[in-house]
């Protein structure tokens, strides 16, 4: 079986890759493109560690075939900061000590960023439900929720 050629845009860069039909977008990001920021925690869409934005839509990259990315844009954790400048969400996660081991952090960042783009002023409950698919086993979520709420406030200019 010959491989599939895919042209896509990842974090603003044009990227081409060859993939097997059954490879997921997560497999390709990690093993072929060299972007290991997205993590595989479950491979079944239950943990959110592999979250990326596909054409701006929050998805689990373990539930997307790599071949489906043809002609699409993919955003990963590696593309959130601009050069030396961290995104507000990244800074707030650091300021609030909202990570311990850090394995869920890339997914939390991508998911929170998608939330704040859609809803700049979420309630605590809205943040909690939006992030329900991003499992964190270390923090009990408390500091993560505070960080996202604080980032939202700062991004609103509040």
């Amino acid at each position: 079986m010959s491989k599939i050629h895919v042209s896509t845009s990842i974090n603003g860069d044009a990227v081409e890759y060859l993939c097997e039909p059954e490879e997921t977008l997560l497999d390709v990001l990690r093993n072929r493109v060299g972007l290991t920021g997205a993590k595989e925690g479950c491979g079944s869409g239950d943990c959110g560690a592999c979250s990326v934005a596909l054409d701006g839509r929050l998805v689990c990259s373990c539930l997307v075939l790599a071949a489906e990315a043809e002609g699409k844009t993919v955003s990963t954790v590696e593309g959130i900061a601009e050069g030396e400048n961290l995104h507000v969400l990244q800074q707030k996660l650091l300021d609030h000590a909202a990570l311990q081991c850090g394995i869920c952090t890339p997914g939390i960042l991508i998911a929170s960023k998608a939330l704040l783009e859609k809803n700049p002023d979420p309630t605590e409950t809205e943040v909690r439900y939006w992030l329900a698919g991003n499992l964190c086993r270390c923090t009990g979520y408390d500091k993560i929720i505070r960080a996202v709420m604080d980032a939202a406030a700062e991004m609103r200019g509040a």
């Binding site: 990690r30 972007l35 290991t36 920021g37 997205a38 993590k39 595989e40 990963t76 954790v77 590696e78 959130i80 900061a81 961290l86 990244q90 996660l93 650091l94 300021d95 000590a97 990570l99 850090g102 394995i103 952090t105 890339p106 960042l109």
Partner: peptide
Amino acid sequence: TRPPRPDGVDKVTGRALFGAD
């Protein structure tokens, strides 16, 4: 005091290398 952790930036930018990386 409560300073930012030294491995924090690596972990919010995706640079930190975990077992499978």
